[in-house]
């Protein structure tokens, strides 16, 4: 048997026989993408929220008069800081298992739990990225907005945040790449993602090489597409430049 015939046979065994590529890899890919996209949405919303609380505290607390509002903001800020410290200090796999086996031990909705766990974990990194972005916007922008009579929320939403996001787009892209690849550990809570799919094929066929390389290539392709998308977005936003 020539080398090529041997390869073709292995290829057939790993991917074609019993519809293994579709059943394991493609369905796994679907799970990977579902978790990544949903978690990214949580990450960006929760992360921005955490960042805004932190920035609002740091920028305004000194000028605030004593009172219940001030106490509430201080407490809220401490809470956000605590969340960031705790989540950042625990390995992703451990967090995932705690959510699945401890907090939601009664639930069997592994997909939902994975989305939550990855979303929250990624959010604390996004929070620090967005916070840096907000801090990088010149204070004169806030003053110009406020001097027109725009409130704090309007100024944030229409003036500061758009510039902040533009400034941190490369860092956000990085964070989403990490998120995508981090999802490879969901096998720990019995979800069959792309990595798990490849692993299962390897186990059935005793051929680890092809399925693992295939999984690696698919991850690589997704990361390349993601960076391209972010690059495009960055160029589109560059039409406007800071003075």
């Amino acid at each position: 048997m020539s080398w090529f015939e041997a390869f073709a046979a292995k290829f057939h065994q790993c991917f074609v026989q019993d519809g293994r590529f579709a059943n394991f890899m493609l369905s796994g890919l679907k799970v990977t993408l579902q978790i990544t996209f949903s978690a990214a949405i949580i990450s960006i919303s929760l992360g921005s929220f955490l960042a805004i609380v932190r920035v609002t505290h740091d920028k305004n607390i000194a000028a605030m008069y004593p009172g219940s509002k001030r106490i509430a903001l201080k407490a809220f800020n401490q809470l956000c800081k605590l969340c960031i410290t705790v989540v950042r200090g625990i390995p992703m796999v451990v967090q995932l298992m705690i959510w699945f086996f401890v907090v939601f031990a009664a639930s069997r909705n592994a997909l939902g739990i994975a989305i939550l766990a990855f979303g929250i974990n990624s959010a604390v990194y996004t929070a620090e990225i967005v916070r840096a972005g907000i801090m990088s916007v010149d204070h004169g922008q806030t003053e110009a907005g406020r001097s027109l009579g725009l409130g704090y929320v309007h100024t944030m939403r229409f003036i500061i945040l758009p510039q902040a996001f533009k400034n941190v787009l490369p860092a956000l892209c990085n964070e989403f790449i990490v998120l995508l690849k981090d999802t490879a550990v969901v096998g720990y809570i019995a979800l069959c993602d792309l990595t798990r799919g490849a692993y299962l094929i390897a186990g059935r066929t005793y051929e680890p090489f092809l399925p693992l390389v295939a999984a690696a290539l698919i991850y690589l392709a997704m990361v390349i597409v993601l960076s391209k998308l972010f690059g495009k977005l960055e160029r589109r936003l560059r039409t406007s430049d800071s003075h």
Partner: peptide
């Protein structure tokens, strides 16, 4: 209305 030394136009 207020006008600033460094303009502070919104670049976006």
């Amino acid at each position: 209305g207020m006008v600033f030394q460094l303009f502070n136009l919104f670049p976006n």
